[in-house]
Computed example of a mutant assay.
Amino acid sequence: MTRDRFSVDAINAFITRLVNARTPIDTDTAGARQLKAAIQAIKDKTVNSTVTSKRHLEHTHV
């Protein structure tokens, strides 16, 4: 990237943004897997769940 005349600071900022974007995704994925495992561990039960996204809540309050 530095050969393409991007500054080191610009490259570092880009990588930081990628990592910062990926971290919540990894956290959500881990939480979803944990929830799935917990639900599968419940034998012969009925489970109801509701999922509300943060994005949805932000748009409904605008």
Score class of each variant (00 low, 15 high):
Gln40His: 13
His61Leu: 12
Ser49Tyr: 10
Gly31Lys: 11
Glu58Asp: 12
Arg55Phe: 10
Val51Tyr: 10
Asp28Pro: 00
Lys43Asp: 14
Ser53Trp: 01
Leu35Gly: 01
Asn12Glu: 15
Ala32Asn: 12
Ala10Trp: 03
Arg33Ala: 11
Val62Ile: 03
Ile11Met: 07
Val19Arg: 02
Ala38Ile: 04
Thr29Lys: 12
Thr2Asn: 12
Ala37Lys: 07
Ser53Pro: 00
Ala30Phe: 04
Gly31His: 14
Ala37Gly: 02
Val47Tyr: 03
Ala13Pro: 02
Asp4Val: 07
Asp28Asn: 14
Thr23Trp: 02
Ala38Cys: 03
Phe14Ile: 08
Phe6Glu: 05
Thr46Ala: 10
Thr60Asn: 05
Ala38Tyr: 01
Gln40Gly: 04
Asn12Leu: 12
His56Arg: 15
Asp44Gly: 10
Thr60Met: 11
Arg55Asn: 09
Leu18Met: 07
His61Ser: 04
Leu18Glu: 10
Thr23Arg: 03
Ser7Asn: 09
Pro24Tyr: 00
Leu57Asn: 07
Val8Glu: 15
Ile15Cys: 06
Pro24Trp: 01
Asp26Asn: 09
Thr23Leu: 05
Pro24Leu: 01
Gln34Pro: 00
Thr46Gly: 04
Ala38Thr: 09
Gln40Pro: 00
Arg3Cys: 06
His56Phe: 08
Asp26Trp: 00
Lys43Val: 05
His61Val: 10
Ile25Asn: 04
Ala32Trp: 11
Thr52Tyr: 06
Asn12Ile: 06
Thr50Glu: 14
Ala37Asn: 06
Asn48His: 13
Leu35Cys: 04
Ser49Phe: 15
Ile15Pro: 00
Met1Glu: 11
Thr2Leu: 11
Leu35Arg: 11
His59Gly: 07
Lys45Pro: 00
Arg22Trp: 08
Ile11Pro: 05
Arg5Gly: 08
Ser53Leu: 12
Val8Gln: 11
Thr2Cys: 10
Ala21Asp: 13
